[in-house]
């Protein structure tokens, strides 16, 4: 693992599997009476949220607390923070407080990268979503969920077919998922109207299509991206109704999917828009499980970034105890 998690591209196949395997072991804890582990005792994790996201913040907070880290929540939205300088000042403040890791959500693409490379802070930086760039822990929890349902909870996602539908242009979830799923061997098809594909998408490690119906029959997983209503006013699509008709997943479309195929959504959903209400609540919908898996995956990320010595990327020597060279 690198010292920061800024992009899914930071994870090679071994790193990604290490996170998923670690998350799988940690997920077993959720059934225990005592859910807490002492691993990050004395470490400080700061949740630095420049953009509202109660769900993601709570998920990271639960993850850090289950590892016994001290958690400081810094919500910058609504305070005097509106532009630039404050990121630097906030970072310097956090450094003075001794943050071991900063989990950052920011409306500006690249803000986590700047935080990690500016020299403002010394700890690890975890990208919890930056602008229209990336959201790597969301991709990890999505991969974790797919692996449970489609690969027996082990190994990679070689050959699994994943259809991701919606506003790819503005979606950090899509970017992170495409990179990670490709690393794990899945075959991803992005489906969107042409206006909602970024320039250069043909160079991404995935296929693209304008037609949803032709990518449901052989899909192992179908992921709907949230539609941002304000996009409708910028001439990306003519109307919500037309988008819903062409790219929304309703019961009729869902019935063309294979029996084993799952339905996913990073949330929060617009029921009746990109996803019909009865689809969201269908047995094959794993949307609620995605949320639960988010905590395990984020625990794994925090543990792997903070649990060991900082820096260094040697092969973890799990046999120390056996060979008697502990301590």
């Amino acid at each position: 693992m690198k010292r920061h998690l800024l992009s899914s591209a930071d994870l090679d196949r071994d790193d990604a599997l290490l996170v998923l395997d670690t998350a799988a072991e940690l997920a077993a804890l959720t059934g225990r009476t005592v859910k807490k582990l002492p691993t990050l005792r004395g470490r400080t994790v700061v949740n630095l949220f420049f953009e509202d996201s109660t769900r993601t913040r709570i998920s990271f907070e639960a993850a850090a607390k289950r590892l016994s880290a001290d958690v400081i929540n810094f919500s910058a939205k609504g305070s005097s923070v509106s532009k630039g300088e404050s990121l630097k000042d906030t970072a310097l403040t956090l450094e003075a407080m001794g943050a071991d890791a900063v989990v950052i959500r920011h409306a500006a693409s690249g803000a986590p990268h700047q935080l990690a490379h500016s020299g403002w802070i010394g700890g690890s930086v975890v990208n919890a979503g930056d602008g229209t760039h990336e959201h790597p822990t969301q991709a990890l929890l999505d991969a974790f969920t797919m692996r449970r349902h489609l690969a027996g909870g082990k190994g990679d996602l070689e050959g699994r077919k994943v259809t991701i539908v919606g506003d790819v242009l503005h979606s950090r979830v899509a970017r992170s998922n495409v990179l990670l799923l490709a690393t794990l061997g899945a075959e991803v098809t992005l489906v969107a109207p042409p206006t909602l594909f970024p320039v250069g998408v043909e160079t991404w490690p995935c296929a693209t299509s304008y037609d949803l119906d032709s990518h449901l029959r052989d899909a192992d997983a179908v992921m709907l991206l949230r539609v941002q209503l304000e996009r409708m006013n910028a001439a990306f699509v003519p109307s919500v109704r037309e988008y819903s008709r062409r790219y929304g997943l309703d019961k009729q479309r869902m019935s063309t999917m294979p029996d084993h195929a799952i339905v996913m959504h990073p949330g929060p959903m617009n029921r009746g828009m990109e996803i019909a209400s009865d689809v969201a609540d269908a047995p094959r919908s794993v949307i609620v499980e995605q949320v639960a898996n988010g905590v395990s995956v984020r625990m794994a990320v925090l543990y792997l970034l903070l649990g060991g010595a900082q820096l260094g990327t040697g092969e973890p020597d799990t046999d120390d105890a056996d060979t008697g060279v502990e301590a």
Binding site: G307, G308, D317
Partner: peptide, 21 residues
């Protein structure tokens, strides 16, 4: 019983993979 998360020497080495409990 994997004891990795309870070890007192975690910071002396890179984070280790967890083993099954």
């Amino acid at each position: 019983l994997d004891v990795t998360m309870y070890r007192d020497d975690l910071r002396r080495a890179p984070a280790r993979a967890l083993l099954p409990t």
